[in-house]
């Protein structure tokens, strides 16, 4: 019997190759997936570590009216990428609202003081009613506008960039951003009695981006914000190094 015709060597070799080669490929793919998973796990671990460090420095706040929002769950902004995580949101210190709050109180009291002015006393009642109504409406609009410009004037630090969003009026929205890797230098300035007493000031972030400087104006605890930015920069450099 001719063995080669029954079971030729070449065919057996081909068959062996067909069964063995995919296994090698599978192992290679598995190794790659494992190393990728390891890298992702390391990045997640390091980002969690970074977050813990940041919370250790700045603490936690839950009030939406706070000047510093740490890891806010509900806060969001239009330009955020889907995988971008907000780490810190800062607004000007609440004490910066004091001037317009005092002005509003004076405006509220003013109509009762105007009763002592004889000319206004001589006005017909209907004019007086309309005048007082208009006065309080304008007072409300003044304080509401001031509150809005404080509330929507936000400085955001995410795990990728720093952002400054400011609205001066309906036709003026300012959006400036800089990647964490683009930050070159960070300085802060606390000047004057109120800023020293209440510990708030301006953080200047020099960048290599198109916007050469981003300012976090009159934010509370500028030194803590600087520390947070330093930690994030270090983390960004490590991540850059790993890549």
């Amino acid at each position: 019997m001719d063995l080669d015709s029954v079971a030729p060597d070449d065919q057996i070799e081909v068959k062996n190759r067909m069964t063995v080669s995919p296994k090698i490929e599978e192992v290679e793919v598995l190794k790659e997936t494992e190393s990728e998973t390891k890298k992702i796990r390391e990045t997640v671990d390091s980002s969690e570590e970074v977050r813990d460090k940041i919370y250790g420095i700045v603490g936690h706040t839950k009030s939406p009216l706070s000047s510093l929002l740490i890891n806010p769950h509900i806060f969001d902004f239009e330009e955020r990428d889907s995988d971008e995580k907000i780490i810190l949101v800062a607004r000007p210190h609440w004490i910066t609202n004091l001037s317009w709050i005092l002005t509003t109180i004076v405006l509220i009291i003013a109509p009762s003081l105007l009763r002592f002015v004889p000319i206004i006393n001589n006005l017909p009642t209907k004019f007086e009613i309309l005048g007082i109504f208009a006065w309080y409406l304008i007072t409300f609009a003044f304080s509401f506008e001031k509150f809005l410009s404080w509330y929507f004037d936000v400085y955001i630090i995410t795990d990728e960039r720093v952002i400054d969003i400011a609205f001066n009026n309906l036709l003026d929205k300012k959006f400036s951003e800089a990647k964490l890797s683009m930050i070159q230098d960070i300085t802060s300035r606390v000047s004057g009695v109120s800023q020293t007493m209440f510990n708030f000031g301006t953080v200047y972030i020099q960048t290599a981006a198109e916007v050469s400087e981003i300012q976090f104006e009159l934010v509370p605890n500028p030194e803590k914000i600087i520390k947070v930015l330093q930690i994030l920069r270090e983390n960004e450099e490590k991540r850059g190094g790993n890549k």
Binding site: P64, I74, D76, E78, L148, F167, L170
Partner: peptide
């Protein structure tokens, strides 16, 4: 209009 635009850009609790 202004509050609407601001709220679309920056979303928060209140």
């Amino acid at each position: 209009k202004q509050v609407g635009t601001m709220s679309r850009n920056v979303r928060d609790k209140i």
